[in-house]
Amino acid sequence: MSIGQLARGRTPAPARRAAAHDPLLVAAALVLVAIIVIALLGPLLAPYDPDQLYAGAVSAPPSLAHPFGTDDLGRDVLSRVLAGARPSVAGPVLVVAVSTVLGVAVAVASAWFGGAVDGIASRLVDVIFAIPGLVLAVLAVAMFGKGLLAPVVALSIAYMPIVVRLVRAGARAELGRPYIAALRIQGVGSLAICFRHLLPALLPAILAQATVGFGYAMLDIAAISFLGLGAQPPASDWGVMIAGGQPALLTGAPEQSMFPAALIVLTVLAVNIVGARTTTWAEAKDR
């Protein structure tokens, strides 16, 4: 046992026991569950039709009837925030799913075959990496018009290089280990080695990257909507609502922007916390 291992202490407690001692993790998990429920059921939970004009007074402060107040067209902010959860969460989920699947496939192929495959993949990844995600999204909007689809596709591509680099490095390290050579000498098939040994070994790193990626994708998509290039008014997307509420900040009705903004921050915060903790746990479990 090395000194470093000694300093890190015993093997970690099982996940459930660890969670019980970690109120922050519990809180973050609860927030995530709540966000997922809202994203699935959002419109059903809303007290008002999110698009109904003049459901109350214009730009009214929070009250019992409108806990989050109303916006400049008298729409109920709470209802709009609840209805906005679905598009605001679905976008980043898509980005992470597509970029992870593509990225892992490219990375594993690149590490497995090496040589020319690796060279071409690395060059491709370098080129994509050189174009910042937000720029690629804006470029996509310029080509295909405003809306969420173009930025989501663009970000799926833009987020791929990071996945490829991380997974490729991990896969190369793993493939270099003798247990993989032992499996090959046993005559175990390539696909079996990939799916039963290589991918499970890489899973903690992939999951960690996916959670981090989700947070950044959520922020990037909201930024696109905030810039007026993504979801279009009167959609109740959180980014759109923040931009829409901006003028009211100076007239003393910050709720219209603040509530959707708070939800974005809260979601990203919760995802980051859960991601970081599960990563630590998964890494410790495999050590």
């Binding site: 003393g252 910050p254 921050v265």
Partner: peptide, 18 residues
């Protein structure tokens, strides 16, 4: 790391503008 530019911006606009 959960505070994107647009969120900080609206908070600052509210705090310093209003």
């Amino acid at each position: 790391v959960a505070m994107p530019t647009f969120v900080v911006a609206i908070v600052l606009i509210w705090v310093f503008g209003r």
